[in-house]
Amino acid sequence: MTVKQLQELLNLRCISEGSEDRQLEGGFCGDLLSWVMGYGQYGQAWFTIMGNINAVAVAALHDIGCMVLCQNSTMQPNALEKAKEEGIWVFTTDMPVFEACGKYYEAIK
C-alpha cells in the first residue's frame, strides 16, 4: 500500500507531504520514542499521539513511511516545520489509535 492509499482508506488529513509514491511496509503504534526506535521499522506507518520535534526526528532518522497523529493530537509548530523540511508524510485523524490501526490492519492482513 502507498501512503496515498492509506490516506484514502482512513480518510486522513494531510499536514506534511513526502514523496508521492512512498510505499508502506506494515505499521507500528507507540508514543515512547526509544521504543519506536527499538522496535519500529523502516517504511512503517507510525500511529501515535506524540507530535513534538523529537518524534519528527525519530521519524526522519528511522525513515518511517508516515506519521498518523490520532485522536485529534496535534503537531507542534516547530515540529511541523521540521517535518515539512525533511519531507515526512504526517496525517491527523479524529480516530483513536486503536481504531485507526484496526482499520489499517484489516486492509493489509
Binding site: 508514543d31 515512547l32 520514542l33 526509544s34 521504543w35 526506535m37 527499538g38 506524540m50 513534538n52 523529537n54 518524534a55
Partner: peptide, 27 residues
C-alpha cells in the same frame, strides 16, 4: 538492560525514558 531508566518525569513527558537508549545503541 531494556526498560531501566533514570529519566525524570519531565523527560518522560517528551516521550523519552523508556529505558531503551543504551540497548538501542548496542542493538
Amino acid at each position: 538492560q531494556e526498560g531501566y531508566s533514570s529519566a525524570t518525569e519531565e523527560i518522560r513527558s517528551l516521550g523519552f525514558g523508556a529505558g531503551m537508549g543504551l540497548p538501542n545503541m548496542k542493538k
